[in-house]
Simulated assay, not measured.
Amino acid sequence: MSNAWLHFLMEHGATLATDNPAIASFGDIASFGKQVADTQIAEGFVAPLTDLGLIEATGEEAAGFLHNQLTNDVEHLGPGTARLAGYCSPKGRLMATFLTWKQGESIFLQLPHHLQPAIQRRLQMFILRSKVKLADASDRFVALGLGGAKAGAALRGHFPNLPGAPFLAASSEAGTLIRLADAGGQPRYQWIAPVETAQAAWPALCAALTPAGTSTWRLTEIRAGMPVITQGTQEQFVPQMINFELVGGVNFKKGCYPGQEIVARSQYLGKLKRRMQLATIASESEDVPVGGELFSSEDPGQPCGMVVNAERNASGETECLVEIKLAALDAGTIHLGAPDGPALRFGELPYPLTDPA
Score class of each variant (00 low, 15 high):
Q186F: 01
G232P: 03
K253C: 03
S215N: 14
A193C: 11
E235N: 07
F252L: 00
L155M: 14
A264G: 04
A208Y: 04
P163K: 11
E221M: 04
R156Y: 11
G213W: 07
E261D: 12
L180V: 09
I262R: 15
Y189V: 05
W202T: 11
A198F: 02
L155Y: 15
I262T: 12
A193Q: 14
A204L: 13
A208S: 14
I229S: 08
T233I: 04
K254H: 03
T220Q: 12
T230C: 09
D182H: 01
T233W: 04
E245F: 07
C206Y: 15
A183D: 02
R218G: 08
G259K: 12
L180R: 09
T230Q: 13
D182Q: 01
A204Q: 14
L246G: 06
P258E: 11
A204I: 01
V247R: 04
L177Q: 08
E261M: 04
L155R: 15
L209E: 08
G248T: 08
G184C: 02
T214P: 13
E196Y: 01
A198I: 07
F244E: 13
Q260C: 07
E245T: 11
G175R: 01
P203S: 03
I222R: 12
M226K: 05
I222E: 04
L180M: 02
E245V: 09
P258T: 01
N161M: 10
E196P: 13
L219E: 04
G232M: 09
E173I: 05
E196M: 03
G259V: 03
